[in-house]
Design a protein around this nucleic acid. Structure first.
Length: 616
DNA sequence: TTTAGGG
DNA sequence: CCCTAAA
């Protein structure tokens, strides 16, 4: 374990004798939320991509053949009715019940006999996939009808490709992949704790002085205990590695100005920004000086932008209405009281991406570009996400029943998503409007719809503003960016599914996807309590390093928040508590540590006061 | 980047 | 959990 820098009072000295925590900031005057109105940021965060021509040929040859496949237990029938994507149906018959051999992590769930769901359905996530990837929609920005038609046909091809990928990747190769968390749960029910190598054992409250001893003795604190490091890993921080296609030209942020760059940075939550940087690494061609300007000068250049976070957290639920409309299950026959759950998947979604292409380009090249982009995005590492009640079910070991997928499952509650390996992006196959009811209508229809990719429009306005997207990002106001980049919902008021687009008033919705809730397990709580006991409340970074170093999904802010809630939980009556019950002894320790460290803090501040006064 | 706190 | 002012 390496400390990057010395912590306030000596860093890990604190492990031996908890150092005096940094002066509490609680006394700091906080300006009350004068929220800057410049919040209206949210630039689209994009990926520029182009892919091989070769792929197109494959695509086009495939487009005429409807893929029908069955593998293992799943029976998947694809009925391509006409040439419309929206009629493509995937039926998956799943027997979700397998004799349980999987120990439930929580006693409360034991009744479910927690077993891994049928691997045919569970579609284990790829090792480097991102758990927190959201359910983002996809669309191609355009408002010209011919583009829409292109899009439709391309979607068919994309779906076929995706199904292909699913069989090969998700159903097959990763079937045996078990996430670390699951392993731990299976082995022990509780998360295993990593023992520190340090020989010296820490005495909680070791620095307690004589005057405090009475207090100390009143609480039951283990005097010798191993440091726990919750050994929960997380793939959240894995970054997307873009497939390095042969003649793929990716140009992300190439022409962004410094100022725009900084602004983007400021506007973007850090985790997205990290991804941006990562993408930039992968995406920026090293040998293309012309890359930046190529758009203007080289008609053949096509840029794809992908929005990885197109939906605000607040919209996820609404978005899921999409999913449920696009992919839903049909209830099993009521008479067949078996445990079979039938799924009829109407369609999948792919990530939203954007295309820029000179207006002089041919429709054929546009087609090719879109197809290549889709293939590039979804190439290989693709998996299926399951969305129930607006929440992604991330734990593949969750049973269908546990996740709420049952025969009685409401048609509106279950959705599937196709997801690329993009960390923060799930893949949604954008559908063209369907004659049937369940169509989401993302594509602008009227000519009045704002065109972002102006160059796509051969017939419309002359676009001297045919600047590259990156340039726009760099120079435009964020809000304007959003508006410019986001599809405007169809005037059709009944189309509720276009919610994300209609909420452009909502700032930053492109990037804010709330992380999925991951309640702290008892073992995590214990590790946290132990760490706070020894380090003190307030040194959250140290707490993180000490007890949650490998739990990438627990930030020190999370730990701080959890401690806050723990303190609260401990101070309310057990009847008022919710969630997985925390053992009372743990809560007692929480209270003890809390009051101790509070007391400690006030003491320190008093000391500081005195020394200050002495100086004067 | 961390902390602290409000939402 | 999120957001963000402050340090």
């Amino acid at each position: 374990m390496v400390l990057k820098k010395t912590i306030y009072n000596g860093g890990f000295h604190g492990l031996l004798a908890p150092v005096i925590p940094k002066a509490p900031r609680s006394l700091r005057k906080r300006r009350i939320h004068n929220k800057s109105s410049e919040d209206g940021e949210t630039c689209a965060f994009e990926l520029l991509a182009a892919a091989a021509d070769k792929l197109l040929q494959e695509q086009e040859s495939e487009s005429s053949t409807s893929s029908t496949g069955s593998k293992g237990k799943e029976q998947i029938n694809i009925h391509e009715e006409g040439a419309k994507v929206e009629q493509l149906e995937v039926k998956v018959n799943v027997n979700p019940v397998i004799p349980g051999h999987h120990e439930s992590a929580s006693g409360a769930e034991s009744e479910f006999d927690a077993q891994p769901i049928n691997p045919d359905l569970s579609l284990k996530e790829l090792p480097h996939s991102d758990d927190d990837s959201g359910s983002d929609h996809a669309s191609i920005v355009t408002n010209s009808d011919f583009i829409k038609n292109i899009n439709t046909s391309l979607n068919i091809e994309a779906i076929e490709n995706k199904l292909h990928s699913i069989y090969n990747v998700s159903f097959g190769d990763n079937r045996d992949e078990v996430c670390p968390k699951a392993v731990q749960k299976q082995s022990g029910g509780l998360t295993s704790l990593k023992t520190y190598k340090r020989k010296d054992r820490l005495k909680p409250y070791a620095h307690m002085n004589e005057s405090n001893k009475s207090y100390t003795s009143s609480v039951s604190l283990p005097f010798y205990k191993d440091r726990g490091n919750v050994n929960i890993r997380d793939d959240d921080e894995k970054y997307f590695r873009y497939n390095n296609h042969s003649n793929t030209r990716l140009r992300a942020f190439g022409s962004r100005s410094r100022a725009g760059y900084r602004r983007m940075r400021k506007m973007m939550p850090s985790r997205y920004w990290k991804m941006v940087r990562k993408l930039k690494e992968y995406a920026l061609p090293k040998n293309t000086n012309e890359g930046i300007n190529s758009f203007c000068h080289r008609r053949k250049n096509i840029y794809f932008r992908e929005w990885f976070q197109a939906n605000a957290a607040t919209k996820r639920r609404k978005l899921c209405r999409h999913s449920s409309k696009n992919a839903y299950i049909k209830e099993a026959n009521s008479e067949s009281k078996s445990n079979l759950v039938k799924f009829s998947i109407k369609s999948f979604k792919v990530p939203e991406f954007y295309v820029e292409i000179p207006e002089t380009a041919t429709v054929g090249s546009l087609k090719r570009s879109v197809m290549e982009a889709v293939k590039a995005i979804l190439h290989g590492k693709l998996h299926v996400g399951v969305v129930v009640q607006g929440q992604k079910v991330r734990d593949d070991n969750t049973t269908l029943r546990q996740s709420g997928i049952s025969q009685n499952c409401n048609l509106e509650t279950l959705g599937f998503t196709l997801e690329s390996s993009l960390p923060e992006a799930s893949t949604f196959l954008k559908r063209e409007e369907t004659p049937s009811c369940d169509t989401q209508q993302w594509l602008p229809r009227g000519p009045s719809r704002p065109v972002h990719v102006t160059s796509l429009n051969n017939h419309l306005e002359k676009n001297e503003e045919s600047t590259t997207f990156a340039a726009e990002v760099a120079t435009q106001e964020p809000v304007e960016d959003s508006k410019a980049l986001v599809l405007v919902p169809p005037p059709n008021p009944e189309v509720l599914s276009v919610v994300p687009l209609s909420e452009k008033s909502n700032k930053r919705y492109e990037f804010s996807q709330r992380r999925t809730r991951r309640p702290f397990s008892v073992s995590e709580v214990e590790a946290l309590v132990e760490a706070v006991e020894t380090l003190g409340a307030g040194r959250w970074r140290d707490v993180k390093m000490r007890a949650f170093d490998e739990a990438n999904h627990r930030t020190y802010v999370d730990l701080k928040d959890k401690w806050k809630t723990l303190v609260h939980t401990a101070s309310i009556s057990p009847q008022q508590r919710r969630g997985e019950p925390v053992p009372q002894d743990l809560l007692d320790r929480v209270l003890a540590a809390h009051s101790y460290w509070s007391q400690y803090q006030t003491k320190q501040s008093m000391k500081n006061q005195k020394s200050l006064e002495a100086q004067m």
